[in-house]
Simulated assay, not measured.
Amino acid sequence: MPETDLFSNEQELQKLCRILELSNSTNDAECLVATRKAQQILSKYGLTYHAFISKLQYKSTHSTKRKIKELQSKIKEQNAKIARLEKRQSSDLNTANSTPRFLGPIQGLKKYLMGNFSLKTHERALLEGIKEIEPKSKEAYMILICARRHGVEYKLANNL
């Protein structure tokens, strides 16, 4: 009764390979003994030389095909990641290149300017000094001028 599988027994497979190498000997007796010993190992697993080589070829081809499919899958995943990153980067660039917009009360515009822009020291001090903002006051106009200077498009809500 043949044993399980020669290819799953690494030690036995290595032994067969060493014996098959001996079949290259220039000594005819040594070559014959190696060939017969290899035949014994193969028959122990229910194999002939032809079946062994076919199975070896199939395993090699199957393994290679499996590895190719795995690599194709990884490439597909990587391409998807690249596409997502390019899309995100493109979106970030579009956002960065677009004019900042603000919609809300003037007090919110002041907070928006202070939180999102690198203001010069005197601008920051000026904005920090504004506590109460009346409609159409000089404080309101200073905030609007600062917003325009930094390229912020704004539309103020009815309640300043």
Rank of each mutant, 00 (worst) to 15 (best):
A125Q: 05
L103R: 15
M142E: 11
S43N: 09
I143V: 12
I68L: 14
Y58R: 10
T4Q: 12
R84S: 07
E86D: 11
E123H: 08
N9G: 01
Y45I: 03
T95W: 09
D5H: 13
S63F: 07
E3T: 09
Q107E: 11
C146Q: 04
A140T: 03
G46Y: 13
T99Y: 07
K69R: 13
K44P: 03
A96W: 10
M142Y: 09
N159R: 11
T35G: 00
L32N: 12
I19Y: 07
I53Y: 14
L6S: 08
Y58L: 04
K44V: 08
R149E: 00
L56C: 04
H62L: 06
M1K: 13
K74P: 04
H50S: 15
K138W: 11
I133Q: 05
N24K: 09
K65E: 10
M114Y: 03
K110Y: 02
S23W: 06
N94R: 15
A96R: 10
L144E: 09
K155W: 06
Q78G: 00
A38E: 12
V152I: 08
L13A: 02
Q107G: 02
D5R: 13
S90T: 15
R84Y: 07
L109Y: 03
T26R: 12
H50A: 13
K15G: 00
I41H: 10
G104C: 02
I106M: 01
N24W: 08
L16D: 05
L6Q: 14
A80R: 12
D28Q: 12
A34F: 05
Y154C: 01
H150L: 01
C31S: 14
R18I: 15
S98V: 05
K111I: 05
P135Y: 04
T48C: 02
F52V: 07
R66N: 10
P100V: 01
S118A: 11
K15T: 14
T121F: 06
L93K: 12
Q89E: 00
L156K: 07
S23C: 08
I145V: 04
N24V: 03
E86H: 03
A83I: 13
R36M: 14
I53R: 14
L144P: 02
